[in-house]
């Protein structure tokens, strides 16, 4: 889940009876499983909420390149290097489709980029954690992409057409990434003593931050209630987190690794795992900018943008010259 704490209108969900005819027709279409397309009428709140959500997801893909890029130059084999490059390339591609989807809502990619660089728009908290060993490339694929998929699979059915379609393509690639991550973890967990230690250490560091990716419980949140009524959020944070733990705990066991939670246990009656909540104070610290890598991540993006200015300006100036020459030739 790359979108966290997305604000909606904050006003609570209106009943159909309280809606004007236009909004009522819009909501009924969503209720019936229909799609909203860019030129259709939509409430302003829906549009803004989606821009925040899709924008945050896009930014997460972009910033998410950095912790992995940290290991591309140190990947241990040519095959691993190629896989990681392909993955990072997919992520930049996901960023691109998502920015395009957001642009259909009347915001430009440049504006969203400026809002990311100024810190006004956020990206997922998870990318503010460092990748310290090669096993972290496994943990990121297995846990981080695994958590992201939990949310993204249902979003293929989201009400906004361009977002749903972007998500279909993204999900295919993400599940491939998750398998690759698990494959790295397998090699590490079944490898030498040092590799096993790296794998366990990666799980220790990424377990709770991965649980945080779903955001705090939103059972009482008016923002989530509205997003769910609009079908731009399909499940509650707790539901998705539970699903993630249920899927991941047996995988950890299969790898012979220990989830860093002494309360983790399978409850035969409910058919679900019980587990400890992450430290939500840490989560809010990370959102405020005090995570281990917030400063470096934003600094890297800002530097790339600033140092790339002459390139963007140069290419634009050249395109403009060519356009003028073409007009003159007509």
């Amino acid at each position: 889940m790359y979108a966290q704490m997305i604000k909606s209108t904050g006003e609570g969900v209106k009943s159909l009876d309280d809606m004007e005819p236009e909004e009522r027709a819009f909501q009924e279409r969503i209720n019936a499983g229909g799609k909203i397309e860019p030129k259709d009428w939509m409430p302003e709140g829906y549009r803004k909420n989606l821009i925040r959500q899709i924008g945050q997801h896009a930014h997460s893909e972009i910033v998410g390149q950095l912790p992995e890029g940290n290991w591309i130059t140190r990947a241990p084999t040519l095959e691993r290097k190629a896989i990681l490059l392909a993955k990072v390339q997919d992520e930049a591609g996901h960023g691109l489709y998502l920015y395009c989807a957001a642009e259909t809502l009347g915001v430009t990619r440049d504006q969203m980029t400026r809002d990311l660089l100024s810190g006004k728009m956020k990206y997922s908290s998870i990318f503010n954690y460092p990748t310290l060993t090669w096993a972290d490339m496994g943990a990121v694929g297995w846990l981080v992409d695994g958590a992201a998929i939990m949310n993204q699979v249902p979003l293929q059915r989201t009400s906004y057409g361009p977002y749903a379609r972007a998500m279909v393509r993204i999900c295919k690639e993400e599940s491939f990434h998750q398998r690759q991550g698990f494959d790295i973890m397998m090699k590490m967990a079944k490898g030498t003593e040092a590799q096993r230690k790296m794998a366990q250490d990666a799980l220790n560091r990424f377990w709770y931050p991965s649980l945080m990716m779903f955001g705090p419980s939103d059972a009482e949140s008016v923002h989530s209630a509205q997003s769910m009524a609009w079908k731009i959020k399909m499940n509650s944070n707790d539901e998705l987190r539970q699903k993630f733990v249920d899927q991941t705990a047996p995988q950890a066991e299969y790898l012979g690794l220990t989830v860093p939670d002494e309360n983790l246990k399978f409850n035969e009656e409910t058919g679900h795992y019980e587990f400890s909540e992450p430290d939500w104070d840490e989560f809010f610290d990370v959102l405020k900018g005090n995570g281990p890598c917030n400063t470096e991540r934003l600094e890297a993006r800002n530097r790339a943008w600033d140092e790339g200015r002459w390139v963007r300006e140069g290419l634009l100036a050249h395109a403009e010259k060519k356009r003028k020459t073409a007009i003159a030739a007509e």
Partner: peptide, 17 residues
């Protein structure tokens, strides 16, 4: 590959990768 994530524009990140 040293350019990963820091190219001047997103399309270049993709092309370089």
């Amino acid at each position: 590959s040293e350019w990963c994530g820091v190219a001047p524009v997103l399309e270049e990140d993709i092309a370089l990768a």
